[in-house]
Computed example of a mutant assay.
Amino acid sequence: MSTAAPVLQATSLSKSFGDFTAVSDVSFAVHASESLAIIGPNGAGKSTLFDLLTGRKRPDTGDVRLFGETVTRQPPWHRVRRGLGRSFQVSSVFPSYTVQQNVQLGLMMARGRAWNMWRSAAATMQSEAAELLERVGLAAKRGMLAGTLGHGDQRSLELAVALSTSPKILLLDEPTAGMGRAESAECLAHIRTIAQRERIPIVFVEHDTHIVFSFATRVIVLVNGKLLMDGTPEQVRRDERVKEAYFGEEL
């Protein structure tokens, strides 16, 4: 593991909802060039942990640090300004706007120009938006309404919007949700190519362990809100505790 300062660090994060503890005392760090997968059976706390990292929820205890700055109580937009790019499990594109306009809106919001975004989107930052769409393979579809795109293309568009903030780390919540295995593998391979080219570390939540083990350089496993294991894909694959958590499923 790298000895350099972490890009993202979670320390003793906990979050409860009433009597239910979704995340309990979870700590880990993300370093440059890593592809870190967060996995676990249903109800393990993966999405809640993701929300704590991105600022959608605040922890009851613990801290989140981004490039050495404590951002635990900072809103999502502050983390984006600090270099955290993100996408969500549910598609977050504007379906009635074109593919290019969605990226232009992302560019404008990243630069604090959101107040006039609806009026100005059609004429602002066209060349930058076109370049981002080229990078994710959507240049030929820039004039289509985002809502008419297939699921895989919508995910690619979300990636372009995330890249519009010039991220230094990408957090992706189930980026292949709703895709078949072949489409999922293609999508993650595309993300990995961009991340390696841009030298951006990735943290992603994913339910398909076969996809995880072919993509991640490191894996953390959550079970009942607690960190069960943090290791390489091969270490995680062989661990008997992980197999038991997945009810003996072949990993």
Rank of each mutant, 00 (worst) to 15 (best):
F88N: 09
G45L: 04
L172P: 00
C187N: 13
E249R: 12
F204I: 03
G147A: 06
H190N: 13
N224M: 09
F213N: 08
L13Y: 06
N102L: 07
K243N: 09
N224G: 06
P175E: 01
D25T: 11
A123M: 03
R56T: 11
A44T: 10
L228I: 03
R218I: 02
T54P: 03
F28V: 00
V93W: 02
T72S: 14
A216Y: 01
G43V: 11
Q126G: 12
M109P: 09
I39V: 15
L227I: 04
M117N: 08
S166D: 15
A146V: 05
I202E: 01
L145F: 14
T11K: 11
C187R: 10
P6F: 03
T165Y: 09
F50L: 03
S27F: 07
A32M: 04
A22N: 07
P75D: 15
L36C: 05
S156P: 04
A140H: 14
L138G: 07
A110G: 11
V203M: 02
L138M: 10
A114M: 10
V219T: 06
V203H: 00
R241E: 05
F94R: 09
E206C: 08
R142N: 12
V80E: 06
L227Q: 04
E206S: 04
A10F: 02
R135A: 14
L157K: 08
W118A: 12
A37S: 09
S92D: 13
P167C: 00
W77H: 15
K15Q: 13
F215T: 14
M125T: 09
V90S: 14
L222R: 06
E250L: 12
M109R: 13
S96I: 12
M108Y: 05
A110S: 15
G231C: 05
A4Y: 12
L251T: 10
V71W: 09
L157Q: 04
A5N: 13
G85W: 00
Q74L: 15
Q101K: 06
R119L: 02
A245I: 06
G152Y: 06
Q235D: 10
A162D: 02
Q101P: 05
Q235S: 09
P59Q: 06
E174A: 05
T11N: 12
N116E: 07
T21P: 06
A37N: 08
F215W: 09
S14T: 14
R238L: 12
V90T: 14
T148N: 11
P167N: 00
L132V: 10
T21N: 14
L222Y: 04
L171T: 01
L13R: 02
V93D: 03
R181C: 05
A122L: 01
R135S: 15
P75N: 15
S27W: 05
G147R: 06
T54M: 02
E240I: 10
R218M: 03
Q154G: 02
E234W: 03
L13S: 05
T148I: 10
L53Y: 02
E69L: 12
F28L: 04
A44S: 15
L105G: 11
P6C: 13
S35L: 05
A130M: 11
A110V: 12
R181M: 13
T209V: 15
V99F: 09
A44E: 03
